[in-house]
Design a protein around this nucleic acid. Sequence first.
DNA 1: CATGAATGAGTTTTCATTCAT
DNA 2: TATGAATGAAAACTCATTCAT
Lengths: 207, 207, 207, 207
Amino acid sequence: MTQLAHAGQAASRSGDDVQDVHQGRRHDLAVAALHTWSEYGYSHVSVRNIARRTRFSHGMVHYYFRSKDALVAECVRIIQESHIFGADVSAAGDVLAVSHIVADAICDSLRTHRRLHRIRFDLRNQSQFERELRGYALEVEHAHDVAVQAIRRRYETLGWTFDPPFELLAIQVDALRERAVRADLLGDDLPVAVTQLRTDLLRVLPG
Amino acid sequence: MTQLAHAGQAASRSGDDVQDVHQGRRHDLAVAALHTWSEYGYSHVSVRNIARRTRFSHGMVHYYFRSKDALVAECVRIIQESHIFGADVSAAGDVLAVSHIVADAICDSLRTHRRLHRIRFDLRNQSQFERELRGYALEVEHAHDVAVQAIRRRYETLGWTFDPPFELLAIQVDALRERAVRADLLGDDLPVAVTQLRTDLLRVLPG
Amino acid sequence: MTQLAHAGQAASRSGDDVQDVHQGRRHDLAVAALHTWSEYGYSHVSVRNIARRTRFSHGMVHYYFRSKDALVAECVRIIQESHIFGADVSAAGDVLAVSHIVADAICDSLRTHRRLHRIRFDLRNQSQFERELRGYALEVEHAHDVAVQAIRRRYETLGWTFDPPFELLAIQVDALRERAVRADLLGDDLPVAVTQLRTDLLRVLPG
Amino acid sequence: MTQLAHAGQAASRSGDDVQDVHQGRRHDLAVAALHTWSEYGYSHVSVRNIARRTRFSHGMVHYYFRSKDALVAECVRIIQESHIFGADVSAAGDVLAVSHIVADAICDSLRTHRRLHRIRFDLRNQSQFERELRGYALEVEHAHDVAVQAIRRRYETLGWTFDPPFELLAIQVDALRERAVRADLLGDDLPVAVTQLRTDLLRVLPG
DNA sequence: CATGAATGAGTTTTCATTCAT
DNA sequence: TATGAATGAAAACTCATTCAT
């Protein structure tokens, strides 16, 4: 549960507590929603299922979130702020170092934020069918793209040129991540899947 | 609708028409279900939604399918029989020819069976959350694997060795297909997406 | 199954077979209905449940019986004709002999026709709530009364006078029979229940 | 309706009214269910039928009762708490007095709780066919047995010995009660039936 | 004669949402 | 703020009945 820890509680010091408490509650509820989502899938995320996970009533959820949609929006905000796609490649001195950092970052993120990754893939899939999810899915995909482009720039700064184009590599990497996420839920051991993932990533990344 | 055409209509033989008519109806209903599925996603494939697409009552659907599960089973059967993963590479004389045939087959299948492909990806995703779907998802993935291995063997017969391993290439190809499927529904032009897919496939396939 | 055997098939000799075949079918269907009834209770006797027990389609049931009600009527007729309440006490020379004959007859009937007895009690109960069953329940109860009165007359002919009145004894005997029927379905051993019943009957019957 | 009156209305204390109001509603709904049950039989006790009796929607019933089974459980609880089998024979000085108290208690209970008695017999019957009812039926029968044994002890304390055994007498008494319950619903006058019952009881009870 | 296609009302249950307090 | 009462639509499924063939 550490991975979805409550970030807003430190805000309870200053004067305008009210706002902060409100935000804290919203956050807590959204975290509960994320848990439900990652375990049962979007279509089973019901307001009551979420409330059951918290100390709050189901009316509360509607008090803090105008609708289920607003709740999804908050969930997406949390995903964004978790920087689950980031890899700090600024210190890497050569292409191989970048690849190692990237592979490690992906695997670490999968270990600590597997729920969020699973949600991302579910969101991307569902957004094909539920109009109201498209905006959120695009936001998350955009965050992914931004992180990916930063990596690309580092590779290119270090003199690597991609052929086939970088984009296709990015798609492959993302597909490997998705496979690891699926393996996890389908019963396969997460650590094993992540180890396998690391091996595979190093095979396809430059170097 | 042409892509999901009615296979049972040839039922004009003689005595056992009854069975054929029955099977025809079952097929028609399953096709209606596939349409609903591909447009609204699995979680909105309800018996009533399907009936609404037909000239029949919802009781009818239950008349032909004991349960929703039986309906899904028939849908999966149709997907299987559509051979949406097949590529006849037996005639290919060199590696490049194989790649072209594979790329063309994938693109053709996407054009004629885009609904089924979309359903496959949705099924694969939902099966993570809905136990009763796992068997079906595994069946479809197995069909995919079988088709993919046939291609691999042809490549290897023609002397190609894969490094990184073939499996990673297959995942990449499948991810490209998924992207094209998503592009379609997200508003991008299908023909454009398929053209792009073909270009991309030829870039990653051997040759 | 012997207890609900088909009585109408011997009629297939004469010229007007048609009628007889028709009656035979009606009988067979009603027997299937009786089986369903005794196992699942009246409220679960559905036309399809019955048809499933036979070699016929569910449309057949409606072909032979205008409605579920007509089917019930036929079931009741079969119960009546099975003489499940009868005891031939004409040969009994003294009161004790009558009591033994009655006890034995009740136990024998329970062994060979336990299904019908169970149905009788279920019918009597349901008829309180479903108007259309009342007539049938009353018919069956009347048959019971007739058989009971014959026994009473024999006792009185042999010089026995009942105090408390015979009617109260009849109610007690019937309640003991009902208890044995319930014991059977609730898992207790039928033979044991019948043996117990015999002992109890001999304790309350004259002599 | 007096016989099934609302027990929770005293909920005017202070802080924990909420609970009481909730319990009150539950009780009210269960009472509505008991009415439906006693009039139409268990197989017609549907959530919608019950809601139709109240000013509430059928969703409400599900709000208060997780499932139909929970509703039945509450109904049974109400039956238990109504002590419909009790007779205070502690003050009776001789056997005849016990018999009179018992007869009067049975008749009084039948007058004030005839619905509950009818439900008991229906429950006992249906429990033969519906597994999920067995536990409830056994509970109610156990309550009956407990009350009956208390009476037996009083008789025996006062020196009466039963031959035939007490158990057979209890069955007879219960059967007489059932007959009165049936007479009521089948159209016969309740007061008349109860008067008759009293006479009959005094004929079979000791003294 | 006999079938099974077809319907519509019924069952239990879940759920997003609104709202009075 | 926060609760939980209340609703109505929707889900999967069952069933008696009608009817064309």
